[in-house]
Design a protein around this nucleic acid. Sequence first.
DNA 1: ACCTGAACACCGTTCAAGT
DNA 2: ACCTGAACACCGTTCAAGT
Lengths: 205, 205
Amino acid sequence: MCHAGGMRADARKNYDHLLEVARGIVAEHGADASLRDIARRAGVGLGTLYRHFPTREALLEALLRSSFGDLTARAEHLGRSVPPGEALLTWVRECTRFTTTYHGVTQVMVAAIEEPDSALHASCVELRAAGARLLSRAQDAGAARPGTDGTDLFALIAGLAWLGDQPALAPRAEHLFDVIAVPALGGHDVVGATVHADHELPTTG
Amino acid sequence: MCHAGGMRADARKNYDHLLEVARGIVAEHGADASLRDIARRAGVGLGTLYRHFPTREALLEALLRSSFGDLTARAEHLGRSVPPGEALLTWVRECTRFTTTYHGVTQVMVAAIEEPDSALHASCVELRAAGARLLSRAQDAGAARPGTDGTDLFALIAGLAWLGDQPALAPRAEHLFDVIAVPALGGHDVVGATVHADHELPTTG
DNA sequence: ACCTGAACACCGTTCAAGT
DNA sequence: ACCTGAACACCGTTCAAGT
């Protein structure tokens, strides 16, 4: 992106500080956090926030950019180093967990995928493409059911992430993953116990 | 409920008219519709709305009450008249569709199930119980996978309803149902074509 | 009993005025 | 080039004053 180049020193400082403050507030209050509040706590005029982040999505994009990149890279890495079915399942799990980092981000991501003007559009499309590659690889290997595409996978991740974002259901997030995602993806019979193998992944995302 | 009894004639009239207006506005703007707007368009003071519906959930409950009752009754009817697996699947599909009637209602329903003070609590708990009965009946018959309970079923419905509520995914709602709900529920192998039987149900809720 | 609407504390967004 | 904050049009919620 172009945010790094050609900014005046004071502007650059405001930008960075704004982002740092926003990270905390969005982590606490979710994607709907008050922009006024962010500007206030950053000790900056409201117009300054709008100058650097003309839209809420632009701010979220700046907050999520590196994580999106990580997840895309992670998909490619898993695709090379792990059996197809396991790679797919692991990646979907990691995506689901990540999306729960900031409350309410799932909805924004789903909306962004169909709005080319959204600041999050590119990242989400890229993520979907990365997932689609893992999915078709698994399908080719008979490790995932046919008849589904990248959008279905994206929806599956979004649905699970949304469920995990609901206070009433968050404690069951892992179980819901087993009950919903595993059978939806599995090409072979997965009613048994083998699929629960990597249940205890570190949460250190 | 007690809303019908002992209301003064003018109050009763306001109550009914408020509800009628609210139905239209919530249908158009979703569960987050402006309460001020509802009162305004009903030609009533804002305090009057709050008197009759002390909370947004109370208003939604009044709007949804009869549909909730219908769905619960429908579960019992299906449980008596249709084979276990088909009854479960049909009911889940109908619930999912209904929840899409008003935008954003899914989130409120999921939240209500863990908040006993919510006006929607009773209806949602009842709905979950009705689903749980269909589920365990199907499980006993080997027509649904074991290891899931009413809350899982409620979450599955909520997740699918939420996906169907997203503009970007709404067109795929039926397909997502086949890809996600069917395998999640199915006790036997459902990769084939048989499960797509009642795909063309009338949308006449 | 019931209704009204002003009052309060918030929003998002824009934009003239300043440096 | 960048920043500020008042201004505008909205919210949800409460509550004194009216009938």
